[in-house]
Computed example of a mutant assay.
Amino acid sequence: MDYVPGCDTFTVEQYGPRCLGDEVEAAFRPREERGRAERDRAGLTVTSEGQHVRLGTPDNIIS
């Protein structure tokens, strides 16, 4: 999939044991329905112990 500014539909090719495009879409839809968080509210922290996704403040770890 290539990003094209101004386009709102894209063609996705899937192969392998999992349909990752379907999984991403399934995770994305509820977020869209609840309303999007501003981009600067989400973050990813990666350390030698692992990685954590946060929303809002650094102490609000969601995964």
Rank of each mutant, 00 (worst) to 15 (best):
E32P: 01
R39D: 13
G56V: 04
S48G: 11
R31C: 15
H52S: 12
V24G: 10
G6E: 06
G56S: 03
A27C: 08
A42Q: 13
T57W: 01
E25R: 15
I61T: 04
S48D: 15
Y3D: 05
R39A: 14
G21E: 03
A27N: 10
S63D: 10
D59N: 06
D22A: 15
H52I: 09
V4W: 02
V4C: 07
Y3C: 06
C19W: 11
T45Y: 04
S63R: 10
A26Q: 10
V4R: 11
V12H: 00
G43M: 09
R39M: 09
E38G: 11
F10R: 12
R31W: 13
P30M: 09
D22C: 13
D40K: 08
R54E: 03
Q14E: 12
T9P: 01
V12S: 04
R36M: 13
L44E: 07
D2V: 15
V4E: 03
R34D: 12
E33C: 02
R18Q: 02
T47Q: 09
C7Q: 15
Q51T: 09
V4Y: 07
P17R: 03
G16Q: 07
T57D: 00
D8K: 14
H52N: 03
T9V: 05
A37V: 12
P17E: 05
V12K: 07
R54T: 11
S48F: 03
T45Q: 12
V24T: 05
R31F: 13
D8W: 12
E25N: 14
T11L: 10
G35A: 05
F28A: 12
V24A: 06
R39G: 15
G50L: 04
G6C: 09
F28P: 00
E25D: 13
G21R: 03
P30I: 04
G21K: 02
M1G: 03
E49K: 11
R18I: 05
R31I: 15
V12Y: 06
C7Y: 15
Y3R: 09
E32R: 15
A26I: 09
D40W: 04
E49W: 04
L20Y: 02
R54I: 03
N60Q: 09
G35T: 06
G56I: 01
I61P: 02
Y3N: 00
T57C: 00
A42P: 04
Y15C: 13
G43E: 02
E13I: 14
S48Q: 10
L55Q: 05
C19P: 13
T11I: 10
G35D: 01
E33D: 13
E49T: 11
P5E: 08
V12Q: 05
V4P: 00
R36D: 08
T9K: 11
I62P: 01
T9H: 12
Q14L: 08
R18K: 13
R54G: 06
T57S: 12
T11G: 02
A27I: 01
G21N: 00
C7N: 15
G43R: 00
L55W: 02
D22M: 13
L55Y: 01
C7H: 15
D40V: 05
R18V: 05
P5I: 01
T47F: 02
P5Q: 00
G43N: 08
T11V: 13
P5S: 01
D22R: 13
D40L: 06
R39P: 08
H52Q: 15
D59T: 02
G16A: 07
F28D: 06
G6V: 06
